Simulated scan of single mutants.
Amino acid sequence: MVAYTTAPCDLEMGPEERTVVLIEKKSATGWMWKVSVALLVAALCFAGVLLFAWYWNGKPEILIHSGQTEALTKNDHTEKTDPHSTLRRISSKAKAAIHLEGSYDEDEGLKDQVEWKNGQGQAFAQGGFRLVDNKIVIPQTGLYFVYSQASFRVSCSDGDEEGAGRHLTPLSHTISRFSESMGTDVSLMSAVRSACQNTAHEDSYSDGRGWYNTIYLGAVFQLNRGDRLETETNQLSELETDEGKTFFGVFAL
């Protein structure tokens, strides 16, 4: 906003001799208004940049098609409810881990223990872990989570008469450790279950479909470099070896 004022002159001069000089005065209010507008524009630009960054960093799911989003949601729900998938996900993020799938064939391979296999199904090894002579070799001294699961399907009725062949069948699964410092095998974890127990659901045992049970072992241990871990399982002919039912693994903490 511009204002004008007249400069003082000699009053004794005549009107024809007087000269009027206009002097431009800049208003302080106009200058402050311009500065305020400039600050407001700068603030709006900065807010726009922040909003743009939040949009792209906080909403990555917009880039996923609806079908892919639904599939990811279903997979995530499955992994949350499946302990086997949870362990596999955790161990896959560990700096050193191994996960093995179990198998057993009376006519092939090992006769008296579960045969652990790497490189099939969900099995893998990383960070220096090795499978040697059906045993897991620890790569470095430290804390490790050791786990294993054995699944069984036991036939509880194998005769024509009602209840024939029914008996208590103990199922056991053990993880042992061999260390050079100890010079002998030491049991780390073990569990025993009884199959074909007499319950209210006796009809389920007499139809020949079998009795199902799972033994799961898992705990944290301080292990030394070169230690070897192995399992011992009975009732191998009753073992379920479909993918995800019988497994053995270790991961570093």
Rank of each mutant, 00 (worst) to 15 (best):
G226Q: 01
L223H: 01
G121A: 11
K245S: 11
V186H: 10
E108S: 13
K245N: 10
F145G: 00
C45W: 13
V137K: 11
W54H: 14
D107M: 12
E101Y: 00
Q149T: 08
A94Q: 06
S187L: 08
V35L: 14
T169F: 05
K95Q: 15
K25W: 11
Q235N: 14
E79V: 14
R177Y: 01
L22S: 07
T86Q: 11
T246Q: 03
E232N: 14
T169M: 08
D107Q: 15
N213R: 10
A3P: 02
G218V: 09
G67H: 05
D10V: 11
E238Q: 15
S179K: 00
L168T: 13
L87F: 06
T184I: 07
A195S: 15
G102R: 00
S103H: 00
V186A: 08
S181E: 11
D185F: 09
V186L: 10
H201L: 13
K135A: 14
K80Q: 07
N75K: 13
G58V: 04
M189G: 02
G163D: 09
S187F: 07
R88G: 01
C9R: 12
R225N: 12
V137W: 03
T184F: 07
Q126P: 00
S237G: 12
D160N: 11
A38G: 03
A3E: 14
